[in-house]
Simulated scan of single mutants.
Amino acid sequence: MPLETPLNSLGFAKAPADTRVVVAMSGGVDSSVVAAQLAEEGYDVVGVTLQLYDHGAALAKKGACCAGIDIHDARRVAEDMGFPHYVLDYENIFKDAVIDEFADSYLSGATPVPCIRCNERVKFKDLLETAKDLEADCMATGHYIQRKMGANGSELHCATDANRDQSYFLFSTTPEQLDFLRFPLGHLPSKNATRELASKYGLMVADKPDSQDICFVPNGNYASVIEKLRPGAAEPGQILHADGRVLGDHNGVIHYTIGQRRGLGIGGLSEPLYVVKLDVDQKAVIVGPKDLLSTRTVPVREINWLGDEPFESRDEWNVSVKVRSTRPPREAVIRPLSATTAEVELIVAEEGISPGQACVFYENDSSRILGGGWIWRGY
């Protein structure tokens, strides 16, 4: 019997030179290292960078993901490593799928996470289909997350480096998408290891700083972007105590988020107050003591389930969940209401849970991500 062809590093039973991989290149060090590493290993690499917004407009900012300088940097890496590189104009797709929802969510009193929608609706949807059109065997990205093969197929796992793990932003990756995706950096012990690889490959982006804010939001000023996208949206109203007292006035609900304490504009009070609710219909910002921020019940919808058994096959799932990207997973019970909706009960109450944020599910005592959904109602 002929010997079976061993799998290459991307999981295909053929030589790297016969394996085409599209690399989503943002121009940063992470995706550049992925492209350079695969090119050095002999893969048929095609680099693709997305132009997501008008780089001459006020929304763009220097150093943002997919800004003009980043497209230039991605092109340089491709030239230096000797593989083709394409820039695709996704401005209209990005505006319709990400930016408009971002603005409308803020206007409805939610706190959106546009990076998740970008992965879900742009990078892992339209770009992934483009990769297939290019006859690629797979698409690789610079995300810090791991794809592992389990007994029932591809599984999504947290990155080895918990400080770089991006599972919160990738929970909506579907099983079908996961079959086609590869994440070569997920096993690395630290970001320093990535930069060392960049230096090894002689990449000019080796010391390039990481982007910090949402790519289309200059200096983290969400309100200014929303006012530009939705002129006249910042309507003034009252700041109310949870007991009904009028404490002051505000210049628009979009300037506030659940859990905010500083910059409320209501000095001279004896107790520290926090934003506990945004009443868009009444144009009111509701504030109160910290204990009003605590909750154990989290309604979740648009659930993407990555478990082996059907989501509704159990009355309850004992898991851990993240309700904010900066917080560690906490023990919880998920009670399915349908295939895509559930009530999540936290074992220990969390503070500042906001509609528009994600609730991501993790298998207990494991690095596996079981999916997640969107928090959709205020408290």
Rank of each mutant, 00 (worst) to 15 (best):
G372V: 00
L178P: 06
L306A: 02
I266G: 09
G63C: 02
L88Q: 12
T326K: 15
D308M: 07
L7H: 05
A339I: 09
L181H: 08
F102S: 04
M81K: 15
E271G: 01
L292Y: 04
S294I: 03
F169S: 11
S167N: 06
G28R: 03
F311N: 00
D161F: 07
A97R: 15
T340C: 06
G28S: 07
L181C: 11
P6A: 09
N119E: 04
T326N: 15
A131F: 11
V29F: 07
C215E: 09
E40T: 14
L240I: 12
Y53C: 10
P16D: 08
F361T: 08
R327P: 00
A39T: 14
P84E: 10
D73T: 04
V23G: 00
E41L: 14
E235G: 07
I258L: 14
T257A: 14
N221H: 12
T160S: 12
G307T: 05
A17L: 09
R230E: 06
Q260S: 10
I71D: 03
E331C: 05
H85P: 06
D179S: 11
T141F: 11
P2S: 06
G237E: 01
D137F: 02
L292A: 02
L50P: 01
G68D: 08
S32C: 10
T111Q: 14
R117G: 03
G371A: 05
D44M: 05
H187M: 09
M139C: 03
F183G: 00
T19C: 13
A358L: 03
L273A: 05
E350W: 04
I69M: 07
D70E: 13
A284W: 01
N119Q: 13
L3D: 11
D73C: 08
A39E: 11
L38K: 06
E129D: 14
V319M: 03
L273T: 07
V333P: 01
K277L: 11
I239K: 00
V34A: 08
V22Y: 01
G307Q: 07
G56M: 04
D100H: 11
N119V: 05
Y106T: 09
Y362G: 03
L181M: 13
I99R: 02
P175N: 08
L346I: 11
G248M: 02
A78P: 07
F311Y: 06
P231R: 10
A60L: 05
V45Q: 12
Y168T: 07
V321P: 01
G237Q: 06
Y362I: 01
R245E: 12
P310H: 04
M139F: 00
Q260H: 07
G263F: 03
G82D: 10
V77K: 02
S199F: 03
V323C: 15
E312T: 15
A284E: 14
D243I: 00
T340S: 15
